[in-house]
């Protein structure tokens, strides 16, 4: 009796001490993470010539919203980039999740003979690749992805890591016996997938879905290779293009004529506009992490 009480007090004490320590550490780390972002926001709200001369401060040296005004003078480009990126992210994530869950399901089926070999074939491209040129040829010449939405959807549909993650999750959360007995009851392989497996893997869908969505949202590379129509630019590429046009002109000594290059504060305002709204996305996804997931090896 006595020991139980003292145990509980000890637990409470250690818990309190740990939490206090935890709050401090997490606060410090959050400050470290947010500090550069504060500089960006402050930079975007500083008059450009002051920004160039005095550098970035935590608080604008001379407050000005002119960068935002200039950005939103012609908002069509940003709006187009935003809307197509949202659509691409949703479509890509949905398709990717569908394919990845199917694959994960098949690869964890113990009565599927080639699951080990196929798992390895899926892992192998992590190490070996043919390089940029043949990959580009494949997508542009044979699949005609230039200026096609597919160029933005296809390359990010799945990754070996996410497939293995999904497979392990399904095999740990759906016992083999359930699948077996469903089979004996006459359920088809596909029915087992959508009626038995899919409903119980919510957290995995959230995690893998989040990673897929992030990849789509952050993608600028595929746009840079395959998309030339401004109306089809992804959001991050829209930003990237703006940032790099000036740098290129500078490095190559190219004369840009009457084409105005964006100023420093406009660039920063653009970063805020592109990145800012994301802060609302993550808490939304967070709610789905109710139960956890575990990851395993490639072998299956």
């Amino acid at each position: 009796m006595k020991t139980a009480v003292s145990n509980r007090i000890k637990k409470a004490k250690s818990q309190i001490a740990f939490e206090a320590f935890g709050y401090c550490i997490i606060t410090l780390v959050s400050l470290f993470c947010i500090f550069p972002l504060v500089l960006i926001v402050s930079g975007s709200l500083t008059e450009n010539s002051i920004l160039m001369r005095e550098g970035y401060k935590l608080w604008p040296a001379e407050f000005s919203t002119s960068a935002y005004k200039q950005l939103f003078e012609y908002p069509e480009g940003i709006i187009a980039a935003y809307s197509n990126t949202i659509v691409i992210t949703i479509v890509g994530t949905a398709l990717g999740l569908w394919f990845i869950t199917m694959t994960g399901y098949v690869l964890q089926r113990k009565d599927f003979r080639y699951r080990g070999k196929i798992s390895f074939l899926i892992y192998f491209p992590t190490i070996f690749s043919g390089g940029l040129v043949p990959w580009y040829m494949m997508l542009s010449k044979y699949l005609h992805f230039t200026n096609s939405w597919w160029a933005r959807v296809f390359p990010l549909l799945m990754t070996p890591f996410l497939i293995i993650l999904m497979r392990t999750f399904i095999s740990t959360s759906v016992p083999g016996e359930i699948i077996e007995s469903a089979k004996i009851d006459g359920a088809g392989d596909f029915k087992i997938y959508y009626a038995i497996v899919l409903p119980v893997i919510g957290p995995a869908l959230a995690t893998v879905g989040l990673f897929l969505a992030l990849a789509y949202w952050n993608d600028w590379y595929n746009t840079s290779l395959f998309i030339t129509k401004k109306s089809m630019y992804s959001l991050q590429y829209y930003l990237y293009d703006m940032l790099n046009s000036a740098r290129f002109a500078q490095e190559m000594g190219i004369y840009t004529g009457d084409i105005q290059l964006p100023t420093e504060s406009i660039k920063m305002a653009m970063v805020v506009v592109v990145t800012g709204p994301i802060i609302f996305l993550y808490p939304f996804v967070q709610r789905y992490f109710v139960t956890g997931i575990t990851v395993g090896s490639v072998k299956g």
Binding site: M102, P125, G130, G131, V133
Partner: peptide, 27 residues
């Protein structure tokens, strides 16, 4: 025996074939 399972792998098979394995010829 497992033709449905094979069918379910088709998207992944096509993806890795086009995105990873065929370009490997370029080595």
């Amino acid at each position: 025996r497992n033709k449905i399972l094979f069918v379910m792998l088709i998207p992944t098979f096509v993806y890795f074939l086009l995105n990873s394995y065929m370009p490997m010829v370029g080595i």
